[in-house]
Each structure stands twice: as structure tokens, then as C-alpha cells.
Write a protein that binds this DNA or RNA. Structure first.
Length: 468
RNA sequence: GACCCCAUCGUCUAGCCCGGUCUAGGACGCCACCCUUUCAAGGUGAAAACACGGGUUCGAAUCCCGUUGGGGUCGCCA
């Protein structure tokens, strides 16, 4: 049974890079019909917040990444971590270190100044605890092997080896008795039966120390898979300006969760030339072997494209539902049943020309606009004095159309152009401007149909009146 | 600085492990054209890459070494 986990620390929003890590873990577990667990790493009491925990839950839920069982809060297991640390101490595989933080800091400074590697020198490793300075509460350090090498057989990075002399004796239990990250991770991953640790490759060096800890504890090693980080468009670390945002920010920008999943999946993973990969297909295909080893850059243009594809594939009703909050924002008021009905009716032509829900709602603004519509500058140009005769004829023709439909109104307008010899564009543009207050919109006859006879004729009247 | 990792079009990538089928394929973006009531979508086409230098080999994007460039890590944070 394959067991993966996503283990974020609740110190901020659910970062987009973390979301991808969660996605890979989820996909891997679902592919193997295993379990995907969630562990909240809240051992840093000062920085962990309830709001961040909520953001993680909400972000994962929105993304559709469901976890198995209840989320485990790591801090609740502090006593267990301490107990195992004491076992290690009793077994002589760990020791008390009485260095003060200030002393450690000085050690680092000096090493840096002398150009030496920054490492704990092991001064309490073999020293008699009786020599301990008074009043200093000790930490527990792991007695790391000093000879040989540690190798991790990473499913993505391949075999990576580091000489043990590069690693120092890390602290596993702080002076206050709480566990440090590398320690609690090892104990928890073991206790939770995690078989595959899939995480960002910023953890690769942690994997060496954790491997030593696993061995010292007599635990069997999980499989590691360190996936490359996501960079900003400039190749540097993803910054806020570049999109290092929480997933809720992507939601607010109008991206569909399934589209974001697809985009994130293709960042660093591929399946031949396939680009649009629905989730069910992704679960079937996902594997760790096809995860690349080089970092990839965030590309909003591609994300938008993928989102557009998913929007066009979405059912009109569900798209309207997803976009309703965005439309309400454009309207500046709560939507009525009628608004929603029109929105859904306009969806086929609306979704064809947008890439995000925000854009979709903006383009649907004509639906919730109230008369008289104030045209934007470019549209106002279409509604100049020279447009008056056209608008009048339009008004006259359209008023006789019955029943009211896109096809019927189009037939009426086309008849008009044939009679007058005017090009369709000459007539359609002013009509569009009158209906939507803009120069760009869905096909104008669709707009007419969605708006209905009364509203359409009313808007036409408004435009004519406006010129008098 | 030390250690580790990475390196194919601007971007995401296929190909690399198992050298020849690669005059390096796809996608996004960009440009042109077609379609067209606007804008899109769609269609067609174009420009665009094996970081560099050495090897190995009959032959290298593919294997080896080095250089350069980029990234990650070096906390009583996670």
C-alpha cells in the first residue's frame, strides 16, 4: 500500500509551489490506489496560525485534492517525539549539548570569517555532562556518523551521495523539549507509515540527515522523490510579484481548479506531447519517472491558455455558477434569477472568447447593466450623429421581429443591409455599442437574444435619445 | 565560501537511460494569412533551441571530462 503525505507548515497561505507538491503526492497516491495524508507541521508555535491552517484546508479543497482521514497536527505529537529522542539518548546515539545560542552564533561567525564550512564542531559529543555550565538547559543532538557517506536513492534525482563529514550533529530536541523539524518529520513519517516522501528539492539536503536518523532509529527508509522548485518568469526564486501567491489568489484571478491542476502538472512532468490532461487521465498516467530534474518557470500566458481551454469545455450551467460571484462583482449588486438565466443563456458565445472567469464576467457586463447604458469612449464614437439614421431604421425593423431570436433579428438586420447597401459591420457596430456600451462583445445577435426584445429595444431608444 | 543539483526554441517540454530513424517534434507566446458583424475561437504557414570547450566513436542533443551559467542547502524555521 502506497502512502504519501503533504506536510505544510501553517505560517502563511498555501503557496502555489506547495500546491504542486500536494498535487504530485495526491496523484501518486490515487494512481496506486493508496492513501494521501495531510499533516500540519505546526511545531513552530510562534509562527503557526489558525488562519493559515484554514487557508491550507480551503486551498486543497478548492483544488480538489482530498486527503484521507483527518489531518494530523504535528505539535500534538511532541511528547512522542521527545520520547523517541530519549530512546536515542539512552542508546548512546544522541547526546546533550550545552552550547548556548550565542555560543553557536559565534561559532558560525568565526567559521564564516575563516572561510570554513559552517558546522557544529561536536564539542559536547564526547564530553562529560558533569562539565555542563550551570543554568544552561541542554538540547539533544544526534550523534551523526563521521565516516563514510550517506546516499539517498531518489526517485527523481537518482542516487545522490554526500560524505558524512559534510554533515554535523543536528539538534533533534530543543532546550524546551520540543522537537525540531528534521526529527519530527522522521518520527511522524515512520509512525504514519509513509512509503513515499514527495516534496520540493529544497529538502534534498534534509533527506541526508533524515536518512541517518532513520537508520539510527532502526526504521525502514521511505522512498524519496525530490521535485524541482517552481521559479519566477526570470528564473529567480518565485517572488510575490511573480505569482508566489496562495492558491486562493489564483481562484480570485478567475482560474478554474481543474485548469490550474493541469498547468501545475505539466510544470515538470510530461507525457509525450500531451498538454490537456483531464484529472482522471492524469491519475492514470502519473508517475515519478517522468518528473524532470530542472526547475521550471511560472508562465501565466500558458496558464491562461489552459484555463481558456477548460472554460470552453465546461458545461454552461456549471461555468455560470462558478463565474456568478465574479459577475456579481461587476454588477456591484446581488444577482437576480433573471441575471443568472441570461448569464447561462449567453454562456456559449461568452466562454468562446475569454481566458479567465474575471474576463468572462467583464464581458458579460452588458447583462447586468442598467439603462441607460453609458458607453465607453470607443463605443460612443460608434454612436455619433451619423449613426442616428441607422439606429432609427434598426429600431423600426427590430420592433416588428416576432418571435424574438438571434436568427430572427439577424434576418431582419441583414434585410436592412441589403436594402440600404450598407455593410453589415456598419450596422452591427452601432447596434453593439447601443446594446453593450462597448465595441467588443459576443456576436451582437446573441446579445439581442439574451437581452430580450423589451430590453434591447429600450437600449436602442436610449442610444437614439442620447443623440438628441 | 563549502556541499549538492540542473542545463534542448523567449517559456513548458519530447528525444537522452538503450548513440545513427533529429535537415531536433509538440504546446504557449510572437508574426503572417484564411474564416469573420467586433473580439475571440478555429484553420494554415513562418521565425525560434541541443550553453561552451575538449574527448570517446565510423557517427553524439544523446556517453565521459572540464568551463560557464542557473538553482538549492548550510538555524534550538519548516
Amino acid at each position: 500500500m502506497i502512502v504519501t503525505r503533504f506536510a505544510p507548515s501553517p505560517t502563511g497561505f498555501l503557496h502555489i509551489g506547495s500546491a504542486r507538491t500536494a498535487l504530485f503526492n495526491w496523484l501518486f497516491a490515487r494512481h496506486h490506489r493508496g492513501r494521501f495524508l495531510l499533516r500540519i507541521e505546526d511545531t513552530d508555535r510562534a509562527r503557526s496560525t489558525d488562519a493559515a491552517v484554514a487557508a491550507i484546508f480551503e486551498g486543497l479543497t478548492w483544488l480538489g485534492l482530498d486527503w484521507d482521514g483527518d489531518a494530523l497536527f504535528q505539535f500534538a505529537r511532541a511528547e512522542r517525539h521527545a520520547a523517541v529522542a530519549r530512546d536515542l539518548l539512552a542508546a548512546g546515539k544522541a547526546y546533550h549539548c550545552f552550547c548556548t545560542p550565542a555560543e553557536l552564533e559565534a561559532m558560525r561567525e568565526q567559521a564564516k570569517a575563516e572561510g570554513r564550512p559552517v558546522r557544529y564542531d561536536g564539542r559536547w559529543r564526547d564530553r562529560d555532562p558533569k562539565e555542563a555550565p550551570p543554568g544552561v538547559k541542554p538540547v539533544i543532538r544526534f550523534k551523526a556518523p563521521r565516516e563514510g557517506a550517506t546516499v539517498i536513492r531518489d526517485l527523481v534525482q537518482g542516487d545522490v551521495t554526500v560524505a558524512n563529514e559534510q554533515l554535523d550533529d543536528l539538534i533533534i530536541l530543543r532546550a524546551d523539549g520540543t522537537p525540531t523539524y528534521n526529527w519530527s518529520v522522521v518520527v511522524d513519517d515512520h509512525d504514519m507509515g509513509i512509503t513515499h516522501v514527495i516534496r520540493g528539492d529544497d529538502h534534498l539536503t534534509n533527506a541526508f540527515r533524515q536518512t541517518q536518523l532513520y537508520i539510527a532509529c532502526g526504521y525502514s527508509l521511505p522512498q524519496f522523490a525530490h521535485i524541482p522548485l517552481i521559479h519566477g518568469p526570470d528564473g529567480a526564486k518565485l517572488s510575490k510579484r511573480h505569482g508566489a501567491l496562495g492558491v486562493e489568489a489564483y481562484r480570485d484571478m478567475g482560474y478554474l481548479p481543474e485548469a490550474l491542476r493541469n498547468y501545475l502538472l505539466r510544470l515538470g512532468w510530461s507525457h509525450g506531447d500531451d498538454e490537456i490532461i483531464p484529472t482522471a487521465q492524469a491519475i492514470e498516467w502519473f508517475n515519478l519517472e517522468s518528473v524532470g530534474r530542472s526547475p521550471s518557470r511560472m508562465d501565466f500566458a500558458k496558464l491562461e491558455h489552459v484555463n481558456g481551454v477548460y472554460m470552453r469545455q465546461s458545461a454552461d450551467a456549471s461555468l455560470a455558477e462558478a463565474a456568478a460571484p465574479f459577475l456579481a462583482k461587476v454588477a456591484g449588486r446581488a444577482l437576480t434569477e433573471m441575471d443568472l438565466a441570461k448569464f447561462a443563456a449567453a454562456m456559449p458565445s461568452l466562454k468562446e472568447r475569454t481566458k479567465t472567469l474575471v474576463e468572462l464576467a467583464e464581458n458579460a457586463g452588458f447583462i447586468v447593466a442598467t439603462r441607460p447604458i453609458e458607453p465607453i469612449e470607443a463605443a460612443a464614437k460608434q454612436l455619433g450623429p451619423e449613426a442616428v439614421p441607422i439606429l432609427r431604421q434598426l429600431r423600426e425593423r427590430l420592433s416588428t421581429v416576432d418571435p424574438w431570436s438571434a436568427a430572427a433579428t439577424e434576418a431582419a438586420v441583414r434585410a436592412l443591409t441589403e436594402q440600404t447597401g450598407l455593410k453589415l459591420g456598419k450596422v452591427a457596430q452601432p447596434l453593439r455599442a447601443a446594446m453593450t456600451g462597448r465595441t467588443v462583445s459576443p456576436p451582437v445577435f446573441d446579445v439581442l437574444a439574451v437581452l430580450g426584445r423589451e430590453e434591447s429595444l429600450g437600449r436602442l431608444d436610449d442610444a437614439i435619445r442620447r443623440l438628441n
